[in-house]
Amino acid sequence: MNAVDTPPMVADKVARDSRISRWFRILLPVAVLAAGIAAWQLVVRINDIPPYVLPAPSAVFQTLVQDWPVLWQSLLTTLLTTAEGFAAAATGGIALALLFNQSKWLEYSLFPYAVILQVTPVIAIAPLLLIYLPQHTAVVVCAWIVAFFPVLSNTTLGLNSVDRNLAGLFQLYGASRLQTLRLLKLPAALPFILGGLRIAGGLSLIGAVVAEIAAGSAGAGSGLAYRIAESGYRLNIPRMFAALLLLSVAGIVIYGLLALTSYLILRRWHESALGKET
Protein backbone atom coordinates (compact mmCIF):
# COMPACT_ATOMS: atom_id res chain seq x y z
CA MET A 1 0.00 0.00 0.00
CA ASN A 2 1.24 3.41 -0.84
CA ALA A 3 0.58 5.86 1.96
CA VAL A 4 1.06 8.84 -0.36
CA ASP A 5 -2.04 7.99 -2.37
CA THR A 6 -4.34 7.77 0.62
CA PRO A 7 -5.85 10.95 2.08
CA PRO A 8 -4.16 12.05 5.33
CA MET A 9 -7.29 11.50 7.42
CA VAL A 10 -7.59 7.91 6.24
CA ALA A 11 -3.88 7.36 6.86
CA ASP A 12 -4.31 8.72 10.39
CA LYS A 13 -7.20 6.42 11.01
CA VAL A 14 -5.25 3.41 9.73
CA ALA A 15 -2.31 4.29 11.99
CA ARG A 16 -4.63 4.75 14.97
CA ASP A 17 -6.37 1.45 14.29
CA SER A 18 -3.08 -0.40 14.13
CA ARG A 19 -1.96 1.25 17.39
CA ILE A 20 -5.18 0.24 19.09
CA SER A 21 -4.93 -3.32 17.84
CA ARG A 22 -1.34 -3.51 19.13
CA TRP A 23 -2.49 -2.40 22.60
CA PHE A 24 -5.26 -4.98 22.52
CA ARG A 25 -2.76 -7.70 21.77
CA ILE A 26 -0.95 -6.87 25.01
CA LEU A 27 -3.96 -5.96 27.12
CA LEU A 28 -6.18 -8.95 26.31
CA PRO A 29 -3.87 -11.71 27.61
CA VAL A 30 -3.12 -9.60 30.71
CA ALA A 31 -6.85 -9.16 31.34
CA VAL A 32 -7.38 -12.93 30.93
CA LEU A 33 -4.59 -13.58 33.44
CA ALA A 34 -6.04 -11.11 35.96
CA ALA A 35 -9.53 -12.59 35.58
CA GLY A 36 -8.18 -16.12 35.99
CA ILE A 37 -6.28 -15.24 39.17
CA ALA A 38 -9.29 -13.39 40.58
CA ALA A 39 -11.59 -16.35 39.85
CA TRP A 40 -9.08 -18.74 41.44
CA GLN A 41 -8.85 -16.56 44.55
CA LEU A 42 -12.64 -16.34 44.76
CA VAL A 43 -13.20 -20.07 44.36
CA VAL A 44 -10.68 -20.84 47.11
CA ARG A 45 -12.10 -18.15 49.40
CA ILE A 46 -15.80 -19.00 48.92
CA ASN A 47 -15.38 -22.78 49.21
CA ASP A 48 -12.83 -22.41 51.99
CA ILE A 49 -10.46 -24.87 50.29
CA PRO A 50 -7.48 -25.76 52.51
CA PRO A 51 -4.06 -24.74 51.11
CA TYR A 52 -2.82 -28.38 50.93
CA VAL A 53 -5.58 -29.07 48.41
CA LEU A 54 -5.49 -25.85 46.43
CA PRO A 55 -3.65 -22.77 47.69
CA ALA A 56 -5.02 -19.34 46.81
CA PRO A 57 -2.88 -17.17 44.53
CA SER A 58 -2.23 -14.89 47.50
CA ALA A 59 -0.82 -17.84 49.45
CA VAL A 60 1.39 -18.82 46.53
CA PHE A 61 2.70 -15.27 46.31
CA GLN A 62 3.28 -15.19 50.05
CA THR A 63 5.28 -18.43 49.86
CA LEU A 64 7.27 -17.04 46.96
CA VAL A 65 8.32 -14.08 49.10
CA GLN A 66 8.89 -16.10 52.29
CA ASP A 67 10.84 -18.94 50.67
CA TRP A 68 12.67 -16.65 48.25
CA PRO A 69 16.20 -17.50 49.49
CA VAL A 70 15.64 -21.26 49.00
CA LEU A 71 13.76 -20.87 45.73
CA TRP A 72 16.25 -18.37 44.33
CA GLN A 73 19.12 -20.74 45.04
CA SER A 74 17.22 -23.58 43.35
CA LEU A 75 16.36 -21.38 40.39
CA LEU A 76 20.05 -20.57 39.93
CA THR A 77 20.94 -24.26 40.05
CA THR A 78 18.34 -25.15 37.44
CA LEU A 79 19.29 -22.21 35.23
CA LEU A 80 22.96 -23.20 35.39
CA THR A 81 22.12 -26.75 34.34
CA THR A 82 19.91 -25.43 31.57
CA ALA A 83 22.63 -23.09 30.35
CA GLU A 84 25.20 -25.88 30.33
CA GLY A 85 22.82 -28.21 28.52
CA PHE A 86 21.96 -25.49 26.05
CA ALA A 87 25.61 -24.64 25.39
CA ALA A 88 26.40 -28.33 24.89
CA ALA A 89 23.38 -28.71 22.58
CA ALA A 90 24.29 -25.63 20.57
CA THR A 91 27.95 -26.53 20.06
CA GLY A 92 27.20 -30.25 19.68
CA GLY A 93 24.33 -29.73 17.24
CA ILE A 94 26.14 -27.19 15.07
CA ALA A 95 29.43 -29.10 15.10
CA LEU A 96 27.73 -32.37 14.20
CA ALA A 97 25.80 -30.67 11.38
CA LEU A 98 29.05 -29.18 10.03
CA LEU A 99 30.70 -32.61 10.11
CA PHE A 100 27.70 -34.18 8.37
CA ASN A 101 27.84 -31.44 5.77
CA GLN A 102 31.50 -32.12 5.03
CA SER A 103 31.20 -35.89 4.86
CA LYS A 104 28.17 -37.75 3.53
CA TRP A 105 29.56 -41.04 4.89
CA LEU A 106 29.61 -39.67 8.40
CA GLU A 107 26.07 -38.40 8.00
CA TYR A 108 24.78 -41.75 6.74
CA SER A 109 26.55 -43.58 9.59
CA LEU A 110 25.49 -41.37 12.48
CA PHE A 111 22.25 -39.60 11.62
CA PRO A 112 19.97 -42.56 12.47
CA TYR A 113 21.42 -42.65 15.97
CA ALA A 114 20.76 -38.95 16.45
CA VAL A 115 17.15 -39.67 15.57
CA ILE A 116 16.99 -42.62 17.99
CA LEU A 117 18.40 -40.45 20.76
CA GLN A 118 15.75 -37.87 19.97
CA VAL A 119 12.73 -40.17 19.87
CA THR A 120 13.58 -42.12 23.03
CA PRO A 121 11.81 -40.34 25.92
CA VAL A 122 14.42 -38.64 28.07
CA ILE A 123 12.51 -39.46 31.25
CA ALA A 124 13.29 -43.13 30.51
CA ILE A 125 16.98 -42.50 29.86
CA ALA A 126 17.56 -40.27 32.89
CA PRO A 127 17.62 -43.03 35.57
CA LEU A 128 20.18 -44.98 33.52
CA LEU A 129 22.41 -41.96 33.06
CA LEU A 130 22.25 -41.31 36.80
CA ILE A 131 23.70 -44.75 37.41
CA TYR A 132 26.67 -44.30 35.10
CA LEU A 133 27.44 -40.58 35.42
CA PRO A 134 28.02 -38.19 38.32
CA GLN A 135 24.72 -36.53 39.11
CA HIS A 136 25.42 -33.06 37.76
CA THR A 137 26.89 -34.44 34.54
CA ALA A 138 23.90 -36.73 34.10
CA VAL A 139 21.49 -33.81 34.40
CA VAL A 140 23.44 -31.75 31.86
CA VAL A 141 23.58 -34.72 29.48
CA CYS A 142 19.79 -35.07 29.75
CA ALA A 143 19.34 -31.41 28.86
CA TRP A 144 21.72 -31.93 25.95
CA ILE A 145 19.93 -35.02 24.63
CA VAL A 146 16.59 -33.23 24.51
CA ALA A 147 17.92 -29.98 23.06
CA PHE A 148 20.57 -30.90 20.50
CA PHE A 149 18.38 -32.46 17.84
CA PRO A 150 16.52 -29.34 16.71
CA VAL A 151 19.85 -27.55 16.42
CA LEU A 152 21.31 -30.43 14.41
CA SER A 153 18.39 -30.81 12.02
CA ASN A 154 17.88 -27.08 11.53
CA THR A 155 21.56 -26.43 10.92
CA THR A 156 21.69 -29.32 8.44
CA LEU A 157 18.68 -27.89 6.62
CA GLY A 158 20.29 -24.44 6.58
CA LEU A 159 23.63 -25.68 5.26
CA ASN A 160 21.83 -27.51 2.47
CA SER A 161 19.69 -24.57 1.41
CA VAL A 162 22.48 -22.44 -0.01
CA ASP A 163 21.58 -20.64 -3.25
CA ARG A 164 22.82 -22.80 -6.12
CA ASN A 165 24.10 -19.88 -8.17
CA LEU A 166 25.97 -18.40 -5.21
CA ALA A 167 27.62 -21.78 -4.68
CA GLY A 168 28.56 -21.72 -8.37
CA LEU A 169 30.03 -18.26 -7.93
CA PHE A 170 32.21 -19.45 -5.05
CA GLN A 171 33.34 -22.36 -7.22
CA LEU A 172 34.10 -20.01 -10.11
CA TYR A 173 36.30 -17.85 -7.92
CA GLY A 174 38.17 -20.89 -6.60
CA ALA A 175 36.96 -20.63 -3.00
CA SER A 176 38.46 -23.12 -0.57
CA ARG A 177 36.26 -25.41 1.50
CA LEU A 178 36.82 -23.29 4.56
CA GLN A 179 36.01 -20.07 2.72
CA THR A 180 32.82 -21.57 1.33
CA LEU A 181 31.84 -22.69 4.80
CA ARG A 182 32.67 -19.42 6.53
CA LEU A 183 31.50 -16.91 3.94
CA LEU A 184 28.63 -18.77 2.31
CA LYS A 185 27.23 -21.78 4.12
CA LEU A 186 27.28 -20.52 7.70
CA PRO A 187 25.72 -17.11 6.97
CA ALA A 188 23.09 -18.77 4.76
CA ALA A 189 22.32 -21.25 7.53
CA LEU A 190 22.25 -18.62 10.26
CA PRO A 191 18.47 -18.00 10.28
CA PHE A 192 17.90 -21.76 10.49
CA ILE A 193 20.49 -22.17 13.25
CA LEU A 194 18.90 -19.38 15.27
CA GLY A 195 15.49 -20.99 14.81
CA GLY A 196 16.90 -24.28 16.11
CA LEU A 197 18.50 -22.54 19.09
CA ARG A 198 15.20 -20.89 19.96
CA ILE A 199 13.58 -24.32 20.24
CA ALA A 200 16.62 -25.76 22.04
CA GLY A 201 16.45 -23.10 24.77
CA GLY A 202 13.04 -24.22 25.97
CA LEU A 203 13.89 -27.88 25.49
CA SER A 204 17.06 -27.74 27.58
CA LEU A 205 14.99 -26.35 30.46
CA ILE A 206 12.60 -29.28 30.05
CA GLY A 207 15.53 -31.71 29.90
CA ALA A 208 17.08 -30.23 33.04
CA VAL A 209 13.77 -30.42 34.93
CA VAL A 210 13.08 -34.00 33.89
CA ALA A 211 16.57 -35.10 34.94
CA GLU A 212 16.32 -33.22 38.23
CA ILE A 213 13.08 -34.96 39.06
CA ALA A 214 14.62 -38.32 38.25
CA ALA A 215 17.71 -37.44 40.27
CA GLY A 216 15.65 -35.96 43.12
CA SER A 217 13.91 -39.23 43.80
CA ALA A 218 17.36 -40.83 43.89
CA GLY A 219 18.50 -38.58 46.71
CA ALA A 220 20.47 -35.37 46.41
CA GLY A 221 19.60 -32.32 44.32
CA SER A 222 18.59 -28.76 44.87
CA GLY A 223 17.17 -27.49 41.59
CA LEU A 224 13.65 -26.11 41.20
CA ALA A 225 12.27 -29.41 39.93
CA TYR A 226 13.69 -31.10 42.99
CA ARG A 227 11.96 -28.46 45.14
CA ILE A 228 8.67 -29.28 43.44
CA ALA A 229 9.08 -33.01 44.08
CA GLU A 230 10.21 -32.41 47.66
CA SER A 231 7.35 -30.00 48.38
CA GLY A 232 4.95 -32.59 46.97
CA TYR A 233 6.14 -35.20 49.47
CA ARG A 234 5.69 -32.67 52.28
CA LEU A 235 2.29 -31.52 51.04
CA ASN A 236 3.69 -28.00 50.82
CA ILE A 237 1.44 -27.24 47.86
CA PRO A 238 1.90 -23.42 47.85
CA ARG A 239 5.62 -23.93 47.41
CA MET A 240 5.01 -26.34 44.52
CA PHE A 241 3.02 -23.64 42.79
CA ALA A 242 5.65 -20.99 43.55
CA ALA A 243 8.42 -23.16 42.11
CA LEU A 244 6.28 -23.95 39.08
CA LEU A 245 5.66 -20.24 38.55
CA LEU A 246 9.39 -19.56 38.64
CA LEU A 247 10.03 -22.34 36.08
CA SER A 248 7.41 -20.85 33.74
CA VAL A 249 8.93 -17.40 34.05
CA ALA A 250 12.41 -18.84 33.43
CA GLY A 251 11.14 -20.56 30.27
CA ILE A 252 9.52 -17.37 29.01
CA VAL A 253 12.66 -15.32 29.68
CA ILE A 254 14.88 -17.87 27.92
CA TYR A 255 12.62 -17.86 24.87
CA GLY A 256 12.40 -14.08 24.89
CA LEU A 257 16.17 -13.64 25.11
CA LEU A 258 16.81 -16.07 22.25
CA ALA A 259 14.12 -14.48 20.09
CA LEU A 260 15.63 -11.06 20.76
CA THR A 261 19.14 -12.29 19.92
CA SER A 262 17.84 -13.78 16.69
CA TYR A 263 16.08 -10.54 15.79
CA LEU A 264 19.16 -8.41 16.53
CA ILE A 265 21.39 -10.62 14.40
CA LEU A 266 19.03 -10.90 11.44
CA ARG A 267 17.34 -7.53 11.38
CA ARG A 268 19.54 -6.05 8.65
CA TRP A 269 18.82 -8.66 6.04
CA HIS A 270 16.51 -11.56 6.78
CA GLU A 271 12.81 -11.58 5.86
CA SER A 272 11.81 -13.01 9.23
CA ALA A 273 13.14 -9.96 11.07
CA LEU A 274 11.78 -7.32 8.71
CA GLY A 275 8.71 -5.23 9.28
CA LYS A 276 5.57 -6.25 7.42
CA GLU A 277 5.31 -3.00 5.49
CA THR A 278 8.48 -3.48 3.41
Partner: peptide
Protein backbone atom coordinates in the same frame (compact mmCIF):
# COMPACT_ATOMS: atom_id res chain seq x y z
CA UNK B 1 42.83 -11.23 -11.15
CA UNK B 2 40.30 -13.47 -12.76
CA UNK B 3 39.91 -14.17 -16.39
CA UNK B 4 36.17 -14.70 -16.01
CA UNK B 5 33.35 -12.62 -14.58
CA UNK B 6 29.94 -14.23 -14.41
CA UNK B 7 26.56 -12.52 -14.15
CA UNK B 8 23.63 -14.79 -13.43
CA UNK B 9 20.00 -14.35 -14.40
CA UNK B 10 19.22 -13.44 -10.80
CA UNK B 11 21.42 -10.89 -9.05
CA UNK B 12 22.69 -13.75 -6.82
CA UNK B 13 23.85 -11.44 -4.06
CA UNK B 14 24.54 -12.49 -0.50
CA UNK B 15 21.57 -11.00 1.41
CA UNK B 16 23.56 -10.83 4.65
CA UNK B 17 26.31 -8.64 3.19
CA UNK B 18 26.32 -4.99 2.20
CA UNK B 19 26.80 -3.93 -1.41
CA UNK B 20 30.47 -3.25 -0.69
CA UNK B 21 31.02 -6.71 0.82
CA UNK B 22 29.17 -8.35 -2.05
CA UNK B 23 31.39 -6.64 -4.59
CA UNK B 24 34.44 -7.45 -2.48
CA UNK B 25 33.69 -11.19 -2.47
CA UNK B 26 35.84 -12.27 -5.45
CA UNK B 27 38.82 -10.34 -4.04
CA UNK B 28 38.25 -11.75 -0.59
CA UNK B 29 38.20 -15.29 -1.96
CA UNK B 30 41.48 -14.52 -3.70
Amino acid sequence: RQSIGFVFQEPTLMPWASVRDNVRLPLRLA
